[in-house]
Simulated assay, not measured.
Amino acid sequence: MQSSEVPSYSLSKQAGWLKVIAGNFGELSSAIPSYTNQFIYHLHLERNKLFSLETSSEMEYAAFLPLEDGIINDQEYQKGELVYFKMEA
């Protein structure tokens, strides 16, 4: 799969973009077959911009910060960290 074949979505207010590597985002679907509800997104946020993702209490989520430090849910994380979000009981 070439980069140009990966579905992408421009975030509102020029906040950045999201590419759907696997799974779905809204009406966008990756060409990679998916047999579960799992998804992988490549998210690029411009400095000082926000992104919000509606979540389900039945799924687990994680984020990786490859290039920059970031703030997720009001907590600071360092670049290179894998942030895991626990399911709520």
Results as ranks from 00 to 15, higher is better:
residue 3 S to M: 10
residue 3 S to Q: 12
residue 3 S to D: 14
residue 4 S to N: 10
residue 5 E to N: 04
residue 6 V to H: 05
residue 7 P to L: 07
residue 8 S to Q: 07
residue 9 Y to R: 08
residue 10 S to T: 12
residue 10 S to I: 13
residue 10 S to F: 06
residue 11 L to A: 05
residue 13 K to E: 14
residue 15 A to I: 10
residue 15 A to N: 11
residue 16 G to H: 09
residue 17 W to Y: 12
residue 19 K to A: 13
residue 19 K to M: 09
residue 20 V to D: 01
residue 21 I to H: 02
residue 22 A to Q: 06
residue 22 A to W: 02
residue 25 F to I: 11
residue 25 F to L: 15
residue 26 G to L: 11
residue 29 S to T: 13
residue 30 S to V: 01
residue 30 S to H: 03
residue 30 S to W: 02
residue 30 S to Q: 01
residue 31 A to G: 14
residue 31 A to N: 15
residue 32 I to G: 02
residue 32 I to N: 07
residue 33 P to F: 00
residue 33 P to L: 00
residue 36 T to Q: 04
residue 38 Q to C: 11
residue 39 F to P: 00
residue 39 F to S: 06
residue 39 F to N: 03
residue 39 F to H: 03
residue 40 I to P: 00
residue 41 Y to D: 06
residue 41 Y to G: 03
residue 42 H to M: 02
residue 43 L to K: 01
residue 44 H to A: 10
residue 44 H to R: 11
residue 45 L to R: 04
residue 46 E to A: 07
residue 46 E to D: 03
residue 47 R to I: 09
residue 47 R to G: 09
residue 47 R to A: 14
residue 51 F to Y: 12
residue 51 F to S: 08
residue 52 S to L: 10
residue 53 L to D: 02
residue 55 T to V: 15
residue 55 T to F: 11
residue 57 S to C: 13
residue 57 S to N: 13
residue 59 M to A: 15
residue 59 M to C: 15
residue 60 E to M: 11
residue 60 E to Y: 04
residue 61 Y to N: 04
residue 61 Y to V: 08
residue 61 Y to A: 08
residue 61 Y to F: 10
residue 64 F to W: 14
residue 65 L to Y: 01
residue 67 L to Q: 15
residue 67 L to E: 15
residue 68 E to C: 08
residue 69 D to V: 05
residue 72 I to K: 03
residue 72 I to P: 05
residue 73 N to H: 07
residue 75 Q to F: 11
residue 76 E to P: 01
residue 76 E to D: 06
residue 78 Q to E: 05
residue 79 K to V: 08
residue 79 K to A: 12
residue 80 G to W: 01
residue 80 G to K: 05
residue 80 G to Y: 00
residue 82 L to A: 07
residue 84 Y to F: 07
residue 86 K to Q: 12
residue 86 K to I: 07
residue 87 M to S: 11
residue 88 E to A: 14
